[in-house]
């Protein structure tokens, strides 16, 4: 099993930390992982993206331009990455701020309105965990118990009281994600 994932959105949305938690969860499940961010000036208020690979074999290239799954959180990323999903692959997106919805017919499209949900729950910082929950519902690449371990490993100890909130956000994401007919 190898899952090649791109997570893309605005800097500040928690794209990189979502990827980190996913990668750490993979390690907790005894798998091989890589986490390769875009870095540089483009991250300042611009777009941020990270390629996460989770595999039961040694990961070859951390750099890819075809993905099994794309998690897309803004319009620029939709324009850039919709075409990079492998046929039969998964595109998960948050509808907030999306003006042109995905159009491909040969991939599975899902939507999780995490920004709206996070605002409704008054926990905007758990936005990325709601998205992650949505993703894990579609692709159970890592088990929930290992995700919790992954969060624990990713967060410094002074933030460990937030694990519960994050866990709930993941579960909420699992509930509100839905397939889009295409």
């Amino acid at each position: 099993m190898t899952e090649e994932i791109i997570i893309a959105g605005f800097g500040g949305q928690g794209v990189l930390s979502m990827g980190k938690i996913l990668a750490y969860s993979g390690i907790m499940q005894d798998m091989e992982v890589s986490w390769m961010p875009s870095y540089g000036p483009e991250m300042r208020g611009g777009t941020a993206n990270v390629t996460v690979i989770i595999s039961d074999e040694r990961v070859s290239s951390p750099i890819l331009n075809q993905f099994d799954s794309a998690i897309i959180l803004n319009q620029q990323s939709m324009d850039k990455f919709e075409s990079k999903v492998k046929p039969g692959g998964v595109l998960l997106y948050d509808g907030n701020g999306i003006t042109r919805h995905p159009e491909r017919k040969d991939i599975k499209i899902f939507r999780v309105d995490a920004a709206e949900e996070a605002a409704r729950l008054s926990t905007t910082k758990t936005f990325n965990m709601i998205v992650l929950g949505g993703f894990l519902k579609i692709k159970d690449v890592v088990k929930m118990e290992n995700v919790i371990k992954g969060i624990k490993k990713s967060l410094p100890e002074r933030h460990h009281h937030l694990i519960k909130v994050n866990e709930e956000a993941i579960k909420r994401g699992m509930e509100i994600v839905y397939p889009v007919k295409n």
């Binding site: 990668a23 091989e32 992982v33 890589s34 986490w35 990961v59 951390p62």
Partner: peptide, 10 residues
Amino acid sequence: DGVIGQMMEK
């Protein structure tokens, strides 16, 4: 290089 420096792995 920047790839190996910036990426995270186990």
